[in-house]
Amino acid sequence: METLVYKRPESLLKDGHFTFCPGCGHGVVLRMIAELIDEFNIQKDTIAISSVGCSIFLEKFFNLDVAGASHGRSPCVATGVKRCKPDKFVFTYQGDGDAATIGFNETIHTASRGEHITTIMINNTNFGMTGGQASATTLVGQVTTTTPMGRKPELTGYPLHAAEIVSKCDGTAYCARVAITTPAQIRKAKAALKKAFEVQLNGLGYGFVEVLAACPTNWHMTPVDSLNHIENVIEKVHPLGVFKDITGEQ
């Protein structure tokens, strides 16, 4: 007798299709978010906040209520929603261009206020949707369409380490950086997301998970090479880890 051990989560729309490039990391993370919403059985009590960039089209994927936000402001929209509906689960889904570049002020203030929301930040070290320009998290030396000779610190400074900074905010209850390069890392990433959900569900504070994700199109690499690039290069600059966990469980 065979048992079903994995299926498409219910919190994804039945006829929804991810519209990302082949090998893009967004799909894996969105699927894990949907799985967790199923597992916590909070589909009817969740309001998702989309952002600007490849992270924008949540209403095309999720079987959830969705509010949109302008570039960088989804933590503010989430704050407004959560303050009015404190019994709902509210999360923002953002990229590094959104959460760590144009909206980093909003990110750290939301963390400092200890808003009971969860932020998932996909870090693929560039502005993916607009064609691969350098973002705040772009690596030194990384070639992008706006750093064609590679990011030079003397011209454009150094990569911003979002999770490390967010972890220093007093209102942050859980903060981690994860990768989705291998099945083992994907499981760890899901455990981190679960933690970031739980701190909100238990009213402990702000949850933040930065996910290193592949952008094969703008990196000009195959999907598999992109994953190797994350492991071998990006993780050296943006190291994985749990930077804060006020529940004390690791």
Binding site: I47, A69, R73, V77, T79, G80, V81, R83, C84, E106
Partner: peptide, 8 residues
């Protein structure tokens, strides 16, 4: 934007 969140 907080007004937007509340308004939604």
């Amino acid at each position: 934007n907080m007004v937007i969140g509340a308004g939604t």
